[in-house]
Write a protein that binds this DNA or RNA. Structure first.
Length: 280
DNA sequence: GTACGGCCCTGTTAGC
DNA sequence: TGCTAACAGGGCCGTA
């Protein structure tokens, strides 16, 4: 389940290989989630960015040799969300009949950028650069976690706009972008804050923001968290699953106080916390 | 604005 | 051994 550290790992692995390449051909699974992949044919990749869990592939149409117009073509963005089981990789000779291949783009050097996604929770859109109005989560996403303008005060103010449960807010991407179920549980555990509270003061907000940055940075440094499906762009697995203190450890002792970790469904997501050091 | 349920998806695992 | 049900969950939508 790729969250910010996993998507960033993939972005870093692909950026130098993709920027400057032109997409000559593309194909997709018939689902509307993936069909927009083919809209990027005859476009050159200018940038590979990321917002939260979304990969942003900035593309521009290749110049028409028969046109004498000097107008600079407008840029678009191929917005890719990996969902639960999405994988992006470069393959020199893929089997296009692979049952889990959902989209592919043939580049001008012959290689193919492939998007595999067993459970089809991923999605692809082509939008005008910066226009995310058709992607609500992206349009409403909060600042990047390491954006220096995201101060504790800003984070606190963003949390104060809602009275939903704290973890629900984190998963909404609105207070800060890129946090999913795993890193939310880890950050709340590290900050010693109960996931179900509906309001918190500036001091605890600051502690939570610090914890989010620590667990995300650790995730990036470890190349992501591989529980089952996640693979990076080179097919490798992450190492962060060895560092988890809360996620997936329900029933096991808290690494801080030795109490038995609890779990419950919150927003249809499994949530694990320590009933003692994350007391409400 | 919020809570909640349901949908999309399929491999894995537990239980019988 | 083989079958069935439960489970995993990000984003989005409809309803109350």
């Amino acid at each position: 389940m790729p969250e910010m550290p996993e998507v960033e790992t993939i972005r870093r692995q692909l950026v130098d290989q993709l920027v400057g390449a032109t997409i000559l051909e593309a194909g997709s699974h018939p689902s509307a989630k993936f069909v927009p992949a083919v809209e990027a044919i005859d476009m050159r990749i200018e940038r590979l960015g990321r917002r939260g869990k979304f990969l942003l592939v900035e593309v521009v149409p290749t110049p028409d040799p028969h046109s004498d117009s000097d107008d600079r073509p407008s840029a678009s963005e191929l917005v890719i969300h990996l969902g639960m089981t999405g994988k992006l990789s470069l393959d020199p000779d893929p089997d296009l009949n692979d049952p889990y291949l959902r989209a592919w783009w043939r580049l001008d050097d012959g290689r193919i950028l492939r998007f595999d996604d067993v459970r089809r929770f991923g999605r692809i859109r082509l939008v005008a650069r910066g226009d995310y109005s058709s992607i609500p989560t992206l349009a409403n996403a909060g600042p990047e976690p390491f954006d220096p303008e995201l101060t504790a005060e800003v984070f606190w103010q963003r949390l104060k706009t809602s009275r939903r449960k704290l973890k629900t807010q984190l998963l909404s991407q609105r207070p800060v972008a890129g946090v999913g179920n795993i890193y939310a549980d880890e950050a709340l555990w590290l900050a010693e804050i109960n996931p179900k509270i509906t309001r918190l003061g500036l001091v605890r907000a600051e502690r939570l923001l610090d914890a989010i940055r620590i667990v995300l940075e650790q995730g990036v440094n470890n190349g992501g968290t591989t529980l089952r499906d996640y693979r990076d762009a080179e097919g490798g697995i992450g190492a962060n699953q060895l560092q988890l203190a809360a996620y997936g450890r329900s029933g096991e002792p808290c690494l801080r106080c030795n109490s038995v970790l609890r779990s419950a469904m919150l927003d249809a997501r499994t949530t694990v916390w320590c009933p003692r050091c994350q007391e409400r």
